[in-house]
């Protein structure tokens, strides 16, 4: 077996890897969308007046946050069929990622809502705005910019956690690399390519998030002045 980097092999597997990259992006996108929505539900659960419900919700979030995504994936993928629910690897993966990161997302939302000063609420009360109107026109427009950096960070985070999906057989980038590597018994090029593809996608994304964060900080500074 030839040691060192083989360019011909690299070119040979490149198309396959490119297609798999699209799958990775799709998985990250769908997982992110689910996480955004699940996060809203956790946030709503936090804000209900029922104490027991709050407690259950808090413990559930704590549990999901402090256990590994990998085992959660296995749990959903292997246990649900025992209860007669058979889902494809894709669906299992998306549900698990959505749930796992949904708990993080709810924290982002909560932080953003608490970041809006209490006096804003008092002012709206004084002006006799309804709660819905207050949220829609006063609170959410101010909370959203605060939430943007956190939301962006978790988009990048989800993207970087998609390789875990390969363990339950989702045909994303890392899965493709393992398959190609196993078939040809060469792991150097596939895994290195995966690393390079991840870098070229996530560094610009992270830079963009950082720019957003800076913009938000600047605009908030203006609010304070």
């Amino acid at each position: 077996m030839e040691m060192g980097w083989r360019w011909d092999f690299t070119y040979e597997i490149l198309p396959q890897m490119a297609i798999a990259t699209l799958n990775t992006i799709l998985a990250a996108g769908v997982g992110y969308a689910i996480a955004l929505i699940v996060g809203l539900f956790f946030l709503l659960a936090q804000r209900t007046p029922s104490k027991i419900f709050n407690w259950v919700n808090r413990e559930l979030v704590e549990f999901i946050r402090s256990t590994p995504l990998l085992i959660q994936l296995f749990f959903v993928y292997f246990v649900l069929p025992q209860f007669g629910i058979t889902l494809s690897a894709w669906v299992c993966g998306m549900i698990t990622i959505g749930l796992h990161f949904g708990t993080y997302m709810s924290e982002v939302y909560r932080g953003a809502l608490e970041g809006v000063s209490k006096t804003q609420w008092e002012a709206c009360r004084a002006l006799n705005f309804s709660t819905i109107y207050t949220y829609r026109r006063i609170v959410l427009p101010q909370a959203f910019p605060i939430a943007i950096p956190g939301m962006g960070n978790y988009l990048v985070g989800i993207f970087k956690d998609t390789p875990l999906l390969s363990t339950i057989g989702v045909a994303e980038l890392f899965h493709a690399a393992t398959a190609v590597g196993g078939y040809n018994y060469r792991y150097l090029e596939p895994y290195t390519l995966v690393g390079i593809i991840f870098l070229t996608l996530s560094i610009p994304a992270a830079m963009w998030v950082r720019k957003l964060e800076r913009d938000v900080n600047i605009s908030q500074g203006k609010i304070k002045k």
Partner: peptide, 22 residues
């Protein structure tokens, strides 16, 4: 920092275990 934060941990693990022997 950019390199290790920009790539996935799983990729780094596999790289360390399967590619470094090359």
């Amino acid at each position: 920092i950019e390199f290790f934060r920009g790539t996935s941990l799983l990729v780094q693990l596999f790289w360390a275990y399967y590619v470094l022997p090359f």
